[in-house]
Design a protein around this nucleic acid. Structure first.
Lengths: 243, 243
DNA sequence: CAGCGTTTCTTGATATAACATATTTGTTGT
DNA sequence: ACAACAAATATGTTATATCAAGAAACGCTG
């Protein structure tokens, strides 16, 4: 059974033409491929990622594969077992809540800063992203919706103008993303029919109200994560009972 | 001229005996060596770190060196130029302030959580670290003082019990540490004779007062960083005038 | 059949070689 | 002396071979 499904999607499409295909290094492409598999939850928690096997599957040598695996480990998106083998980390309820809370802290700060700096054009872009997101979600294309939701959060945080903050948020996402995807695979929708949290964020930006923006994105993260927390609680309770 | 001075310090001394010397991988040792050089500001901003040269200097092959360099790049402790060569990033005033602020946000949160969870034993450990720190500082051993200060901040954050938070703080430190060291090399002492900020943190922990702890560590970071900000402002002003 | 030692397989870690490209150096012709 | 082209060098990137340590399979003996 193949470890990674065949998805060489470039993520950052290079040019409007199919054009001079991305001259990324193999290492970079391997990184994107593995990260993509992780984000789309095609890798089971606890699964081993053996360098040689992954290399075979991607038809490249182990060197660039090893580089990308180690990079993902350093980003805490993957872990190492006692022997040094790369494994997909298990998402515990505890870890999930922890990451959610740190996301709220840092994305909240990002939103607050964004509220101060964002121009009307910036906000319009964000609004457009959200509308795309809603449209995609309506079509039940959860994978795509996931990506567009990520896009919203990243774009918002980028508006803070803080490189360091963005780095942190990006990094938290790669740890949290797989959990979200895991949920989507379960066929549940984390968001409800009410007014979507993103809207409140956009309104706060328009008012240039930092604290309102902070609260809005924090509420969005909390709401979006609640379904995951519920489900993980249920699963952990079940497995405990089985023990 | 050698890129890295000879310092193979194990950081995490393994055992009380000189004992079964650390069976770290070469990659790990290279990482520690390069990181150490960075933290002790033996690398000039803008300097190139050529994999083969570093490998020669450490008497190992390029593979583990490349791995550690890439790891440091992924941690934003080093950067890549357009060609892919690793370079020591230049510290701008802007970046310095940015990292300081994000440190305040996250270490503040760490301290607040620590105030809730810390036992008296935990606090005693922290107190001991601070006393060591003061003693070392008095002896004008700035390098060692720097390490002990780092130890204080890390230990405090670890008391928060949040793995994710600790990872972020650790990562911010590796970006900020070189700047601190740079300052120390200039012979300036960032901390003053008054009651040290760490003391206020410890008091807040004893009172189990989260917000007081948050304020205390934030104030400490702000105060400690002020000298750096002043100096960088001065330097940037000068270089602007020269232009 | 059980236990134990040996061989083989797996797999991470390291070294080295092969390759590609950009930069530098050197040479030559006018 | 200078411009243009060619050779050499520097350096990141990838592939492959080797090593070592642990795990697993295998077979031998009692």
């Amino acid at each position: 059974m193949p470890i990674l499904s065949t998805e060489a999607s470039g993520e950052k499409g290079s040019g409007a033409f199919g054009g001079p295909i991305s001259r990324d290094s193999l290492s970079q492409r391997a990184y994107i491929a593995i990260r993509g598999s992780l984000m789309h939850s095609r890798l089971r928690p606890g699964q081993k990622l053996v360098a040689r096997q992954v290399a075979d599957e991607l038809n490249i040598s182990v060197t660039p594969v090893r580089e990308s695996l180690l990079r993902l480990v350093s980003e805490h998106a993957l872990s190492l077992d006692e022997r040094g083998t790369v494994i997909v980390p298990k998402v515990t309820l505890e870890r999930c809540i922890e990451i959610r809370d740190i996301r709220m802290l840092n994305e909240g700060e990002g939103a607050a800063r964004a509220a101060i700096r964002a121009s009307e054009a910036d906000i319009a872009v964000l609004e457009q992203i959200h509308e795309n997101y809603r449209a995609i979600e309506q079509k039940n294309d959860y994978q795509a919706a996931l990506t567009e939701n990520e896009n919203f959060h990243f774009t918002l945080c980028r508006l803070s103008g803080s490189e360091a903050l963005f780095g942190i948020v990006e990094n938290l996402w790669i740890q949290f993303g797989p959990v979200l995807a895991y949920l989507y695979d379960g066929g549940q929708r984390p968001f409800h029919g009410e007014i979507h949290g993103h809207i409140h964020v956009i309104n706060a930006l328009r008012s240039h109200d930092p604290e309102q923006a902070r609260n809005a994105i924090q509420h969005d993260i909390l709401t979006g994560g609640q379904v995951i927390v519920d489900r993980l609680s249920a699963e952990e309770k079940t497995s405990t009972e089985l023990t």
